[in-house]
Simulated assay, not measured.
Amino acid sequence: MTSPVTSWEGRSFEVTVGQVAHGGHCVARHEGRVVFVRHALPGERVIASVTEDRGGSFCRADAVEVLSPSPDRVEPPCPVAVPGGCGGCDWQHATWDAQRALKATVVAEQLSRLAGVTMPVEVEPLPGGPLRWRTRVRMTVDPAGRPGFLAHRSHRVIPVSDCPISAPGTVDEVVSSTWAPGSSLTIAVDATAHTHVGSSPVAVERAARREWRVSGFWQAHPDAADVYAEVVASWSGLAPGESAWDLYAGVGLFAAVLAEQVGPSGSVMAVESYRPAAVEAAENLSDLPQVRVFAGRVEAVLGAGAGPDPSVVVLDPPRRGAGKQVVDAIVARGTSRVVYVACDPAALARDVSTFHGHGFTLTRLRAFDAFPMTHHVECVALLER
């Protein structure tokens, strides 16, 4: 019987950092165990301090000293983007080009390992650079009433006086005030430059040549919604009179794009599980009678046989992905083309694998650095039967 591994938490040791892994860290090995190291870059020699060890084959650590730095290493623009500091950013210690290369490696690795797909991946920058892009921010208030961000994998609040990735009109609007200890703040600056602070601020956004009222999810990067809408429009291949689905539709962005393509003689079914967003989608798209909005879980709506069979399906699921039940339901309705907008490359790869089992092929992929300085990356994939 193998004896349990003694916890390494609090231990420090020297390691050579290997390849990047999904989640904002790199992989190292020490005494036969995997060590996931944050604040490091591939090829570096660092002192790793173990921050979490639950036994088993791996533990988590921070690079607290860099003995042999990568040529891609830079000084983080934020003073709390350091070991033991804010957990919001993963790659402030890397050049912007290097960040995108790391993300491209992760996307390619996930597709290869989970879906058996080998294809080149380039992560494209969005306009505006890597700083001051985030227009929607969630903060937590510490016991002294100061707003801040959580440390990595922790409920500990790191108070801040600024956030270099947040747009003017967000963090700077709240840090000079005292707030209720333990509360959460949602701050958004919208397309009209108005700042909203509250649990569900209703913002006015503009994308795809339309105006949107949004109280829930909207892309944090100011250019993301327009860019994704353009890709969806160029890949959908819809003709007037055809039918399309927009699954996980939010407030209706992609449904509007599809409605424009199918015209008054076509139809678009938009499905959104979060009822307030579905209500806003219906309001935002009230001038497009070819769109019908369903409020309900995608699995339930598709299981009930709603909507005409689609020529094209667009889906933008949450981080966990669509899953087998939804993919099976889409395929069963005879569509030949799927445009998949994904915020998690692992979930995308799993769903691509399921689509492959139904005879679909991943024919195109674009990846965007919609979240600079973090490990997050947005992908748009085209799957064709």
Results as ranks from 00 to 15, higher is better:
T361E: 11
H22G: 06
G55K: 04
C78A: 15
E378D: 07
A277N: 05
V197A: 03
V117W: 04
S353K: 13
F355E: 02
A21E: 15
D344M: 06
E173G: 11
R100M: 15
V291W: 05
V141S: 02
S12K: 06
G55Q: 01
V271C: 02
L131K: 01
A249T: 14
V5G: 09
S177L: 06
E52L: 11
V338F: 07
G43K: 01
G128W: 14
A94L: 05
H194S: 14
V15E: 00
T186D: 04
G237E: 02
A370W: 14
P83E: 01
W133K: 00
V251G: 02
H356K: 07
D351P: 11
R136C: 07
T2E: 15
G145V: 12
S154A: 15
V352T: 06
E242K: 05
G84S: 09
A346M: 03
V314Y: 07
L102I: 14
H22K: 08
D190P: 06
S265K: 14
D53W: 08
V5C: 08
F360N: 00
G216M: 05
L315G: 05
F360M: 03
A259I: 07
D246L: 11
A220F: 15
L185N: 03
V352R: 01
D62Y: 11
E124Q: 13
E65H: 06
D226H: 08
P4C: 06
A101L: 14
E378Q: 08
H358V: 09
I330M: 03
A229E: 01
P120D: 05
C163D: 01
P79D: 08
A115L: 08
P79F: 13
A270I: 11
A329I: 10
P125Q: 03
A193M: 12
Y228K: 05
R206I: 13
E260A: 15
A259C: 10
V117T: 07
W212H: 04
G128Y: 14
V137R: 00
Y228V: 15
Q261M: 05
M269A: 09
A167Q: 06
V35P: 00
V137L: 04
A81Q: 01
G24C: 10
D97H: 15
G250P: 04
V312H: 02
Y228T: 11
W96S: 13
P69Q: 03
A191C: 09
Q325S: 10
T95R: 01
E242T: 13
A306Y: 13
L126W: 09
A208F: 15
V189R: 01
A256S: 09
G116A: 03
Q99L: 11
Q290P: 11
V17L: 02
L365H: 06
V298Y: 03
S49G: 14
D344W: 13
A188Q: 07
G10N: 01
A347F: 11
A259S: 13
A203R: 09
V27N: 02
H155K: 06
T363K: 10
G263C: 05
W218A: 04
L285F: 14
H196M: 08
V312T: 10
H152L: 10
A220H: 04
S273F: 13
V157F: 12
Q110D: 11
R100G: 13
V35S: 00
G148E: 01
D90N: 12
V227L: 09
